[in-house]
Structures are given as structure tokens and as C-alpha cells.
Amino acid sequence: MGFYDGIFGMPLLINGQTIDDSAIDQEFSAIKAHYESLSSISCCERDDEFRGYAKENITFRALLTQEAERTIPEPSDEEVYRAFQKLKDEHGGSDQFYANMGLVPDQDELIRDDLRLNLKVESLREKTCSALATPTEEECRSFYDQNIEQYSEEEEVRASHIFKSVRKTEERETIFKNLCEVRQKLVGGADFNQLACKHSDKPEEEIDLGFFKRGELMDEFEIVTFSMQTGEISPIFATPHGFHLAKVTERKTGSPKPFKSVRENIEAEIIAQRQDAKLQKLVDELKKSAKVEYIEPEEPINSQDHN
């Protein structure tokens, strides 16, 4: 049995503070959505791992918040007021703020209480990280060299395509056979644009798709075209809209951006990593004396037991 097996569905108690299951579920969903966006998981294969991350993240924030409440002075009413006004401005005004957040003005006192706590946590973060050194030029250059892919232009492909819509199931075989004949002509050297104008269901101006990056077109289309060489004719492939034939006409490789153009971003990234490490060190110290418990839910009483 793994470390996290058997603790799901149990309320989390951190130094006497109860964390609802709903908060853990929300954190879990955010973590899983992040990994799904990276296409690194499918379905539920890593759910146990992600629920473990969710509990760790919530424990981190709870201990940091408790330490802020214990050690940081209360912010002034003026500071809370300015924070509230800034929050409203970020949402486009007072009315839009309440609409976006699903709140009403009667809840302002609760909102101000949350803002007071947020200001204390932010003060603790600043206090903890105040002595961090600014990255040197050498450190920034080294980070750039070690993470060059992160600071490269995205690869781009330019492609033209022939599209045939499939409106009826019985048409699929005929359309596919016709496209096979078209593909044979293309592989034999026929002009792609001429055949596309003759056979595609798209107008002539939509045959050339221009340059596109990953994430801009349908997954099925990108999987095929980004795997092709310039001048290559694709196999016939299907999308939810119909059948396609594609030809890659140009490619732009993802060349590195100049160091000077990303220098500020690199410095900010290094600082953020150092801040995270400093805060993690603080929380690790707090964990040594913290009491973190998983409370088993009480079993419902069976009325027959009292008969």
C-alpha cells in the first residue's frame, strides 16, 4: 500500500485547522488539469499521485498562513481598503467584481477578512525572501544555456490541404477511394494547388493554411503535418470534419531567442525559484513541530444495533 492509499476522503487536520474535502478536491482537479494540458497523462492513471500533491500543497499553504497569523502584525484598514479597491479594478469595477466572483456587497466584511490574511501572508513571504541575492549575469547566462528550449521560438509549419466533407456514412468509402487516386497523382508529381482547386470542398483561398504553431489547429492535423518533411504528401487522414490530404510547403525551426531579449524573464525565473526554495525551507521547519492528521469519518450509526 502506498503512502497516500487509504487517506483519500478523510478530512485533513493541520494544527487543529480542518481542511474540507472540497478544498482538496479542487486542488486535485487543478493539478490534474495542468498535467492533462501537457499531454503527459490519460484518464486516471496518476490520480493517487496528484491527490498526494494536492494534500502537500494545501499543507504548505496552511502552515504558511498560520505562521503569518502568528508572527505578522495586522495590516491597517487603509491597506485593506487599497487592496480591496485594487481587486475591484482588476475585475473592471465594483459591479463586475461581484458578478465575476458570485458575491454581493453584504459579504464585504468577509472579503476584507480574507484580504487582511492575504496581506499578512504576502508580508511573511517578503520578509522571508528579503535577503535573497539578485542573480548575476553569469548565473543568468548559465540558466539560459541549460534551459535553451524554454527560450526558443516555437517551430512553425506551412501547409496546404485538400479537404473532403463526409456528410453521410455511405459516402465515406467513395470519398476515400477518390482521394487515394488524387494522392497517387500528387506523389507522381502533379501540382498540388491545381488538384486542390479541383477536388477540395474548401475555396481556393483556404487551400494554403499559411504558417501555424502547435495548438493552433486540430490535433489530428498537427500530428500529421509536424511529423512531415517539406514537400512531403501526407497519407489520407480523418478529422471530425472529414478527410484530408496535406502537403508541407515550408518549415521554420524553433531557433533560440537572443539572450538579451529574454534576460529579464530569466532573472525573474531564477528569483522565483529561489523564493520558492526559501519558503519551502521555512515550511519544512514548521512541519517539524506541526500536527498533521487525517481524520477518519465517523461511521453512521445503524439503528438496528440498538434493538
Rank of each mutant, 00 (worst) to 15 (best):
G2Y: 12
D5W: 05
I14N: 01
N15G: 06
I19K: 02
A30S: 12
I31M: 02
E36D: 10
L38F: 13
S40V: 14
R46Q: 10
R46V: 05
R46M: 10
L64M: 14
E67I: 04
R70A: 14
R70M: 08
P73W: 04
Q85C: 11
Q85S: 09
L87Y: 05
K88H: 03
D89W: 01
E90G: 04
G93D: 06
G93H: 06
Q96R: 15
N100G: 04
M101N: 14
D106W: 06
E109P: 00
R112F: 09
D113G: 11
L115A: 08
E122G: 01
L124E: 04
L124Y: 09
K127T: 13
T128E: 10
C129S: 15
S130E: 12
E139G: 08
R141C: 04
E154Y: 07
V157I: 15
H161M: 08
F163G: 06
S165V: 10
R172I: 03
L179K: 01
L179E: 01
E181L: 12
R183L: 04
V187Y: 05
G189A: 06
F192T: 02
N193A: 06
Q194E: 14
K198F: 10
D201T: 10
K202F: 11
P203G: 05
I207L: 12
K213M: 10
F226S: 12
F226Y: 14
G231Y: 10
G231L: 07
P235Q: 10
P235M: 02
I236Q: 03
F237R: 05
A238H: 04
L245E: 01
V248T: 05
K257N: 09
P258M: 08
F259T: 06
K260D: 15
E264G: 03
E264D: 14
I266L: 05
A268S: 13
E269W: 00
I270F: 04
A272R: 14
R274S: 06
Q275F: 00
A277H: 06
K278D: 01
K287A: 03
V292K: 02
E296H: 07
E298P: 00
S303Y: 13
S303N: 09
